[in-house]
Design a protein around this nucleic acid. Sequence first.
DNA 1: GCTGAGACTGACTAAGTGTTCAGTCAGTCG
DNA 2: CGACTGACTGAACACTTAGTCAGTCTCAGC
Lengths: 219, 219
Amino acid sequence: MSDTDSRGGAERIIEAAIDLFGRHGVHGTSLRSVAQQAGVSQALVVHHFGSKDGLLRACDHHVASVTRANKERTVAGGPQLDPFQTLRQLEKSQPLLRYLARALTEGGERTRELVDEFVADAHDYMRLAEEAGFVKPSATPHERTIVLVIWSMGALAMHSHVKRLLGVDFLADDAPPESLGPYLRPMLELFTQGLMQEGAFDQMTEMFEVPESISEREA
Amino acid sequence: MSDTDSRGGAERIIEAAIDLFGRHGVHGTSLRSVAQQAGVSQALVVHHFGSKDGLLRACDHHVASVTRANKERTVAGGPQLDPFQTLRQLEKSQPLLRYLARALTEGGERTRELVDEFVADAHDYMRLAEEAGFVKPSATPHERTIVLVIWSMGALAMHSHVKRLLGVDFLADDAPPESLGPYLRPMLELFTQGLMQEGAFDQMTEMFEVPESISEREA
DNA sequence: GCTGAGACTGACTAAGTGTTCAGTCAGTCG
DNA sequence: CGACTGACTGAACACTTAGTCAGTCTCAGC
């Protein structure tokens, strides 16, 4: 909306689209509103991206490239429990994370590729962390990693409830690391001392003791 | 759709609305499509519920009453790790769970009440399970319960990815309990043996426990 | 100068949206 | 019987939607 914006129109449009798609969903966002927020005409949006679906794909591609570029930063940061922690430290990460949170649930087939990439990365980190002696070995390492990624993604998708219930804002731009405490502290406690007493395990696993068909799964 | 439907119009409309809202979202569902699926005119929908928002509230109320009615069943079932497990055993629970999964993420303030209820219930269950010797005590029991509920809700919201990655379908009507194995087995393993080795705990909790250590880090 | 390409726009279209309204029909009550 | 109620409908309403189109502007290259 500012008179002097050095960035090109297409770039401003994608930025506005990510913000509005994340805020109100795809169906709840019109090309008009995207154009208005970007300070351009609606026709220009179609001119650049062909259609609303084309704009959506461009947004996905943009988010994917940003997250991919951050993989190196994640690797350098040592063992990581939360795959989105490094994304949070990006500048202006709030709209991007909000878009990602929404895409994870209503994206359907579109987000499949991105999620698979998160899982693959997490698998690498877990293997490294296990070799470094940070995490314990598992009877089903593949499934365990998937469950952990699902929980992280799910918690991101539930960010509004997390903020209300714990006072932890996953989308905050300038949140200091210790502000995540009310979420991370019980998580770390669960991941060290566990949740259940020893006896409860055998009692509950009986129900799921099917032939070891799943353990065949491997990459 | 069927010529002879004993149920009243309002009931059929709510059922159709829950199905379509859960499938395509609120913005992606028109009153026309709801009326068509219910085998009724669009005007009747407005006649019964006043507006689209009124229909939405009626759906929320319906879901809330069903889940509330199942609280007793949950209590009788003993210690429960997943607050949605009993919902899954309902007949025709698939549309209801899908609606719930979508409402959890895009419901915003609307779903606040329902989520708070889930948390309050989970708090009761955790206290009972702790007294029964099933789960270990926690330094932050309140936050721990919230985190567990958030993970459960988040996993439900991620049901499409869970199905693709683990072959576990949270929304399946006729799924036998052991079909949840690939999800529940690593979860139980995490909750008994934990995830991290003993040494890793102190190393990572430093960041969130003592404020002085952080100021030292920055200096 | 001129040409052509591409960013960019206002005006338009056809379809779809939630909502309004007048009115039909089957019952119920006095 | 007539008055009345409530479920139910078709047709219209005003509005928004994604997408089209003709045409303007800027600017590099000849």
